[in-house]
Nucleic acid binder design. Sequence first.
DNA 1: CGCAGCCTTGACCATTATCAACGCTGGTGG
DNA 2: CCACCAGCGTTGATAATGGTCAAGGCTGCG
Lengths: 247, 247
Amino acid sequence: MPQATVLKFPDPGPCPGAVESGPCANCGARSLSVCARVTNDTLRSLNDLTEVVTLKTGETLVREGDAAGQVYNITSGSVRVYKLMADGRRQIIGFLFPGDFLGLGSGDEYAFSAEALEPVTSCRFSRRAYLDLANQHPDLEGALLERSTTELAAAQDHMLLLGRKTAMERVSSFLIDLSRRNARRGDDPAIVRLPMTRGEAADFLGLTLETVSRTLSALKNRRVIRQSASDAYEILDADALGVLCGD
Amino acid sequence: MPQATVLKFPDPGPCPGAVESGPCANCGARSLSVCARVTNDTLRSLNDLTEVVTLKTGETLVREGDAAGQVYNITSGSVRVYKLMADGRRQIIGFLFPGDFLGLGSGDEYAFSAEALEPVTSCRFSRRAYLDLANQHPDLEGALLERSTTELAAAQDHMLLLGRKTAMERVSSFLIDLSRRNARRGDDPAIVRLPMTRGEAADFLGLTLETVSRTLSALKNRRVIRQSASDAYEILDADALGVLCGD
DNA sequence: CGCAGCCTTGACCATTATCAACGCTGGTGG
DNA sequence: CCACCAGCGTTGATAATGGTCAAGGCTGCG
């Protein structure tokens, strides 16, 4: 089983939620995730209980059923979060990118597993300590609730996708979603990177890898997207994609 | 458009979360939903901002896109929560039964609509006031977070169902889920009531109404379930159902 | 250079959707 | 009071979307 490399967090380093692209433009703290609501004072407290964790491709962050003791904030790379059925069928619940949290909304045990899709760096801290800290900092508590609300809304959108959308609508929605997440992080929304395999995209979209491949090919043939790197597509016609996604 | 009947809450009446079956066995408060964690003092404060709302079949509790000003706690009846696509395709996000909350984990706007599946009574209170109160009562805040965690876990289970399960596995999982919810409310887990139409069950399970009907017939023919009323089934072989549900 | 892993494409198949007919039930109005 | 009708449920026949199986190509790494 792969083991994570653990480095002690340098003091005074970036706060949880910091990303490689640097400090947040709004609050000056090096955090994309919580800056809008959380004071620098709170951020300093968070710093004290953080350690940096780096993982290689395929290494495990959390395992379904394990005690939910830790929270991660991704600072670089990407992560797959998934559930397995007894016979090996896999549903990927979501992909995490820099700025995203893992494990905040868990009960006593993680209800999912999470693995690095590519080399990952993350800030890890105790979930208990984080929740205690949130109790003392209403601004952090608010950010936490807002975060879980966003996550739930995304889950509901994904239920609509899985339950009612066609293959073309699913793939189009996926590209739009990735593009929007780029925009939120300050990356180019026209260039969508797909760090996951076709099989992983399929397990996220409720399809097979062949159907994902065929559908991407169809979008290429229609000149809606263009392959701009081995793992990236350029969106040529965002309007068409918006129509194809169904909503 | 149907209009809800609004009655002023009688003082000192049941707290939000109360159900018709009476007070909670643990804390004495008439609440199924928050009793495990919330003090009677907090409950009294909640009482003050509550009004009772009754709805007839088909009436609307909240509409997707409306300002998320109110929270509901269902005390009797059942509710469908759903999202629509532009062309009318519907994904039902979940069904609510007595003790369930609606609208707690919302942003500025509701991301879904909700309608009464049958006559409903509920306690309604201001979301803002509720969140403010939660800020002052750590026990309530904790209950709130726990609730949103549970909801998220349920959403993730449902994603697995929608993305990866067969029709038989979906219907079996659905029956098991309803049975478990019965047990949690103190009802008989062997008798599952289906207050929704086949079409509504289908829109929840990502199937068509015909497939739901056929699958229930197959379960009847296999003597796994038995129709015990026009809208209820008895689970004859819970073990078989457990195998059929896939996990 | 060769191999492993991933991607693409084709041919065929199966699960589930669609279309259709008909039965049941409960509510309404003659 | 009974007949009719609307809405729901069941079942059958057929169709289509996406899955399965298979072959071959590309890329990167040892």
